[in-house]
Amino acid sequence: LGISAYDIIRNAKDKEYYPYVYIASGSYFLTGFVTVLLGWCRLNLVKNALANIPKSSMPIKNRDLPNSVFNLITGELTRVSMIAWTGEPKPEDVNLPGWGRPGSDFDDIHFKSSMINTFSLIEQTALKKNSSLKRQPSMSVQRYIDLLIEHRVIDRGLGHAYVEGYERARFSEDEVPQEQYTEFMKLVLQLLRRLGYNGD
């Protein structure tokens, strides 16, 4: 195209057909300009079309795919959805470590906190039984239980078992399982009975 244009313009110029020179030059310039303009417009059109596609959109609709492929994809999506739904935990199955299972006798009980709080009940019960069993502010749980043992209010084995369970709950980073909590509370109940606790 460039050689043909050059030949036409040169021949017209040699023969001094200047109007033809202008016409030929203008025609080829206009053709080139229109070609570049159309290419640029097409490029922008494609870029805008791509930019307008939602990022989460996938061409998996019936109109986008052959029927066999569309049916395969929708079937797999349905199967995956069913698996996800059946594997999703139900509210009654959710059980956080260290907490009572919802709907059970231990509902909304944090085992560690409950075990730690038993000491104040033991202290209050012992004080009601004997005012001389008042705990000093600097006295540890271990020392106070030893005091109760010294006053023969509780026996040594029961007291030491309580301290062991209490300190495990108080200082361990691990949550307390329900079985351990149940056994500890049985121990607390025995201890309170020795102290004369009547539930008031």
Rank of each mutant, 00 (worst) to 15 (best):
G26Y: 03
S27Q: 10
S27G: 10
Y28C: 05
L30N: 10
L30F: 10
T31V: 05
G32N: 03
F33E: 02
F33W: 07
V34S: 07
T35K: 07
T35H: 07
T35V: 12
T35M: 12
L37V: 08
L37R: 08
L38V: 05
L38T: 05
L38F: 08
L38C: 08
L38G: 06
G39Y: 06
W40R: 08
W40Y: 15
C41E: 14
C41V: 13
R42K: 06
L43S: 12
L43H: 10
L43G: 09
N44S: 09
N44P: 00
N44C: 09
L45W: 15
K47R: 12
N48F: 08
N48T: 11
N48K: 14
A49D: 13
L50R: 12
L50C: 09
L50E: 14
N52M: 06
I53P: 04
I53S: 01
I53E: 01
P54K: 00
S56C: 06
S56W: 01
S57I: 01
M58K: 14
I60E: 05
K61H: 13
K61R: 13
N62E: 15
N62P: 00
N62R: 15
R63A: 15
D64P: 02
L65C: 02
N67I: 14
N67A: 14
S68W: 14
V69C: 05
V69R: 11
V69K: 13
V69M: 10
F70R: 02
F70P: 02
N71A: 10
I73G: 01
T74N: 12
G75K: 05
G75D: 03
G75V: 03
L77F: 11
L77E: 07
R79N: 08
R79T: 07
R79A: 10
V80R: 09
